[in-house]
């Protein structure tokens, strides 16, 4: 069974975010790009499922929409343990474009399920997974915390408001996953790093599609007024109730 993992790349989480061109563009000159952390967890779990002989998963492919600059990120995914990488050659302008590109490539692909990290750490849309499922007309299972198998049928566990549910889907599904799907991202080993270059990384052309929304400007978040240091628990309770009026 093949598992497809959709990945995006974001500025390293410790990077300072700056903008240029009158605050209309992200200043990417000093940014170090990394795999979006939720996607990295998705890939980690997919690779673990493949390495676990007790599951029917035997192949993991990663797919990314992006320009040539994201190839090192894909090769890191291959080093972590994906078997194949595909890059759809365009820098997308919004989540709809990303999802449409992915859907065009994934339509009809033989696979058990498709995994998407809940959101990306750049535009925080949490949109691509759901859009992709709709475009493919697949079921989407969100807040997935684990995958078990009943024979060759995947059973997805999802977190719901008052507990956990296990669900089964007739046909392929898009899983939207968050922390908990894997505990920590897998660190690639030397063998993985060495073989990453010999694994296939296909580049395919993008299709024409217009974005639905436009990012016109960026501003810095408002700065905080500064901390008020308190000396006793009594002062804290009083401040929260009388001053902030929150309790």
């Amino acid at each position: 069974m093949k598992v497809l993992v959709c990945m995006s790349y974001i500025p390293d989480t410790t990077t300072k975010i700056r903008f240029r061109e009158d605050n209309t563009q992200l200043d990417d000159t000093t940014i170090q790009w990394v795999i979006n952390p939720w996607d990295e967890l998705a890939l980690t779990r997919a690779v673990e499922l493949k390495e676990d002989a007790g599951t029917p998963v035997d192949e993991v492919e990663i797919v990314m929409v992006g320009g040539v600059r994201c190839e090192p990120i894909l090769r890191k995914g291959l080093a972590i343990g994906a078997d194949k990488a595909t890059r759809i050659d365009v820098e997308p302008l919004d989540a709809f474009q990303t999802a449409t590109q992915l859907a065009a490539y994934l339509q009809g692909k033989d696979c058990g399920f498709i995994v998407c990290g809940i959101e990306s750490g750049d535009y925080n849309e949490a949109a691509v997974g759901g859009m992709l499922a709709e475009l493919l007309d697949y079921a989407s299972v969100s807040s997935v915390s684990s995958v078990q198998f009943d024979g060759v049928t995947p059973i997805y566990q999802r977190d719901v408001a008052n507990g956990k549910e296990q669900v089964k889907v007739d046909g392929p599904a898009v899983l939207i996953v968050q922390k908990g799907f894997a505990r920590v991202p897998k660190i690639p080993n030397m063998r993985g790093i060495m073989t990453a270059r010999s694994k296939p990384l296909d580049v395919i052309p993008a299709i024409e599609v217009d974005p639905l929304v436009e990012f016109v400007m960026y501003t810095a978040p408002p700065s905080k007024g500064g901390v008020k240091m308190l000396n006793t628990p009594e002062e804290l309770v009083r401040s929260l109730s009388d001053e902030a009026k929150l309790i």
Binding site: P72, R75, K76, A79, V184, P185, I187, P188, N189, M190, I193, M194, A196, R197
Partner: peptide, 17 residues
């Protein structure tokens, strides 16, 4: 090289985590 960066990151991740 990309491989060198990956090894550096792998060592860093293991050490810091």
């Amino acid at each position: 090289t990309e491989e060198q960066i990956m090894i550096q990151q792998a060592a860093r991740d293991y050490a810091q985590r």
